[in-house]
Amino acid sequence: MQLVRQNEKSGGKMHRSGVVVLAALLAAAVASGCAAETGGGGTGAPGAPAKPTAGRSGDASPQAGPARAPDTYAETVRKKQAARAVAAKKWGLAKVPLAAPEPPKVKPSITTRKGFEVRNDEGLPPVFTTVPTKERIVFLTMDDGAEKDPELLRMMTELDIPYSAFVSDYVINDDYGYFKKMQRRGVTISNHTLNHRYLPGLSRAEQKREICGQQEKILKHYGKRPTLFRPPYGNYNRDTLVVAKSCGITAVPLWSSEAFPDRMEWREWDQDLHPGDIVLTHFRGKEDWKGSMPDMVRRVMKTITDKGYAVAKLEDYV
């Protein structure tokens, strides 16, 4: 504005239209500076507050805030335990199952249990009944596959109790789909031979058919060859381990106790649970024992929980 007055006084030759244009430019610059100072960026009416920019307070369409951080393991466990308490009441458990600790980042080194060795077993899959750990956890495993109780699937899913399935083809081949549903719920399908025969009584070739043949069946129906194998009745010889290794088996978990709907049977001298113990049960129903599979789960979980243990997933440790 000072420039305009000086030109007018000096009688300069600036055309009136030029004066008007320059004044308009100066006014626009002043208005722009004021808008910047107030944080405005909109085109509101003269004298009115500037329209806020996107994302600022008062904007009609605020941007989303920062993404919520993932739950910590402790928070995840808390939420699972709350849901598990509801499920425990629904399924008639005496107590709410305890929560397992976070799985180890590095799996423990497992060796064959003393007294379970075979001749020249170096390099063969280890045979064991307990996983080396100091945590108060045990592992629940189910064998064969004769009983296909849909209540078991619902119960274990709602309780969020991990377990492992060691299946034999001769009893699951009438309903592969049942175990596919189980697999979708996070259960690992492992090898228990084609026909559940007494392996030490077979030739190496016959054992290969039983073990490696089941590897191929599981691959076909469940998409992956197992790495865990349990010999029927817990009986094996060196040929068993040699053959198992040849078709992808890396470990042979047996068991330290067995669960039934009406009792527990113990294989250890003190008849008790220990950190890392493997618990065996079977896919059986009322035709074979005194109760259903849910009855068995109620019994085994009462024993495990009363003794201060949680159930962890075997495959997280082996």
Rank of each mutant, 00 (worst) to 15 (best):
Met1His: 09
Val4Glu: 05
Arg5Leu: 03
Asn7Leu: 13
Glu8Asn: 11
Lys9Trp: 15
His15Gly: 03
Val19Glu: 07
Val19Thr: 11
Val20Glu: 10
Val21Thr: 04
Ala23Pro: 01
Leu26Val: 14
Ser32Asn: 09
Ser32Ile: 14
Gly33His: 03
Cys34His: 14
Gln63Glu: 15
Ala64Cys: 09
Ala69Gln: 13
Thr72His: 10
Ala74Glu: 04
Thr76Glu: 12
Val86Tyr: 08
Lys90Ser: 03
Trp91Val: 03
Lys105Leu: 14
Lys107Tyr: 10
Ser109Pro: 01
Val118Pro: 08
Glu122Pro: 08
Gly123Ile: 04
Pro125Cys: 04
Val127Tyr: 04
Val127Thr: 00
Val131Glu: 09
Arg136Cys: 04
Thr141His: 02
Met142Asp: 10
Met142Cys: 02
Asp143Tyr: 06
Asp144Gly: 07
Asp144Thr: 01
Asp160His: 06
Ser164Phe: 01
Val171Thr: 13
Asn173Lys: 11
Tyr176Met: 00
Lys181Leu: 02
Ile189Phe: 08
Asn195Ser: 15
Pro200Phe: 13
Ser203Asp: 11
Glu206Lys: 09
Gln207Phe: 06
Arg209Trp: 15
Ile211Ala: 03
Gly213Thr: 06
His221Gly: 07
Gly223Ala: 04
Pro226Asp: 15
Pro226Val: 05
Leu228Val: 09
Asn235Leu: 13
Tyr236Arg: 05
Asp239Asn: 14
Val242Asp: 03
Lys245Ser: 01
Ser246Thr: 00
Cys247Pro: 02
Gly248Ile: 15
Thr250His: 08
Ala251Arg: 12
Ala251Cys: 03
Val252Asp: 05
Ser257Val: 00
Ala259Tyr: 00
Asp262Pro: 08
Arg263Thr: 08
Met264Asp: 00
Trp269Tyr: 10
Asp270Trp: 09
Leu273Glu: 02
His274Ser: 10
Pro275Val: 00
Gly285Met: 02
Lys286Cys: 08
Ser292Glu: 04
Pro294Glu: 05
Pro294Trp: 13
Arg299Cys: 15
Met301Lys: 02
Ala310Val: 04
Leu314Met: 10
Asp316Trp: 09
